[in-house]
């Protein structure tokens, strides 16, 4: 299992300017709630899934993806089973197993919405270096003190992960049994796990503050950047494509209500 984080690569989605992707992520997430037509939502979700597989063929090995996928599909089945409104489409004689148009359209709507949001979020997270996003936001006026807060937090996350692993191992080495627990012991062991992790994080933050202060961080209100990513023609082309597609979907949504 690989963890859900930025995976370097050279796909088109990787080469897009971070803010373009971020903006489209927000826009699509909003539009998903405007569109009511289940088939359109599900079709868009399928396109999202295909793109995701193109970008990252080993998507099924990324932590959490299977669970999200199964949850989304289960949503559809739940609606089929329990929403019996609309015209009867299939009747095996047992009420629970009968399928109605209401169940199908509601199932497609909510499952499609859920899956689409999951898929585009995965595309965004897998192809966007979070530091690049922070740098881009800073160029567009996010005060760099806050931008750096984000960058630093992202940089330190893997360090914290390693540390958590070491602390867990150190606990095992001292005879802590994670495999035979009652609730009270679990809380104690959790406390014993979190204490060193938290103290380590606070100490590191403290040291980082001193060393940044020592190098004059924040002394000047403006800052120059070594990395200078800008939007390119690619962003324009892709944006136009997404815009046309979404316009089509919205038109269809209002034009032919079933």
């Amino acid at each position: 299992m690989r963890k859900l984080s930025y995976q370097p690569g050279g796909s088109l989605a990787h080469r897009l300017y971070p803010l373009t992707k971020f903006a489209w992520l927000l826009i699509i997430t909003t539009i998903v709630f405007i569109i009511q037509e289940g088939i359109l939502l599900m079709a868009t979700a399928v396109i999202g899934l295909l793109l995701l597989i193109l970008i990252n063929p080993s998507i099924w090995k990324i932590r959490g993806f299977r669970l999200a996928f199964i949850t989304g599909s289960a949503l559809f089945i739940l609606y089929l089973l329990f929403d019996k409104t609309g015209i009867m489409l299939f009747n095996p004689g047992l009420e629970l197993l009968s399928i109605t148009s209401g169940g199908v359209s509601m199932g497609l709507r909510y499952s499609g919405r859920f899956l689409l949001i999951i898929f585009i979020s995965y595309i965004f997270i897998l192809t966007t270096d979070p530091s690049d996003l922070a740098y881009a936001l800073m160029r567009f006026g996010l005060p760099y003190r806050y931008g750096f807060m984000l960058v630093t937090a992202l940089r330190l996350a893997p360090v914290m992960e390693d540390e958590a692993q070491t602390i867990y191992r150190a606990q095992l080495a001292r005879g802590v049994r994670y495999d035979q627990l009652n609730l009270r012991r679990m809380l104690l062991i959790l406390q014993q796990f979190l204490t060193p992790l938290l103290i380590g994080a606070l100490r590191r933050a403290d040291k980082l503050v001193f060393s940044m202060e020592g190098r004059g961080f924040g002394a000047s209100p403006h800052r120059t950047f070594r990395k200078r990513a800008t939007a390119s023609r690619l962003d324009l082309i892709i944006s136009i494509a997404i815009f046309l597609y979404l316009s089509l979907v919205i038109t269809l949504n209002y034009w032919s209500p079933i």
């Binding site: 602390i167 150190a170 080495a173 005879g175 060193p196």
Partner: peptide, 21 residues
């Protein structure tokens, strides 16, 4: 690991990673 503890003691590199109480 849990079954090795009685025979093997382990001291990690960083003291802060192994102080729990």
């Amino acid at each position: 690991t849990s079954n090795l503890v009685k025979d093997i003691g382990f001291i990690f590199q960083n003291p802060d990673h192994q102080i729990f109480t």
